[in-house]
Amino acid sequence: MSRTFRLTPPLGDADTTALRIGDRVLISGTIYTGRDAAHKRIVEALANGQEPPFPLAGAVIYYVGPSPAPPGRVIGAAGPTTSYRMDAYAPTLMAQGLKAMIGKGKRGDEVKAAMAQHKAVYLGAIGGAGALMARAIVEAEVIAYPELGPEAVRRLVVKDMPLVCVNDTHGGDLYLEGRRAYQR
């Protein structure tokens, strides 16, 4: 019964506000990676009036630290990391135009409020399915903070990256809703 949306970044308000929790999302196009260490640097750069390493308007960020690419591959395993570690930085990025975050695990109340305010969504990828997720990635290039190793910021080109809408712009939370039906 769930609906499927095909999205190509940069995203606009019309893309994000159409989504409801439980909707399937297939993203194709350019997205960027970042974990806590990269987020800290991006937020510091913004505070110092510097340019972020990629345009934030309409951007999609994937919380991932991939394993090294084996020979002949563009990337290694690339599943999501736990998102709450980015909660301290996420509202600042949304205020600058970030439209979608991809990760796994719960978000804090401030992040959820910022999603409603800035019309941004949180999309879940399957945690621990790193080899499977890597299949959706067709290009990968480190564009900032190479010294962070797996935590460097990468530009990824993805094709039909399979995701599910966990937090929408209307206050919905799939982690709370999904559980309710199976709780005894």
Binding site: P66, P70, A78, G79, I126, G128, A129, G130, A131, L132
Partner: peptide, 24 residues
């Protein structure tokens, strides 16, 4: 569906010599 994907992920990892999960 998630459990099916996890089993599929393990098959891909074994066939392609990729880690099951990027957090090794």
């Amino acid at each position: 569906e998630i459990l099916t994907r996890l089993l599929e992920n393990a098959d891909i990892a074994a066939a392609e010599s990729m880690p099951i999960c990027q957090d090794c």
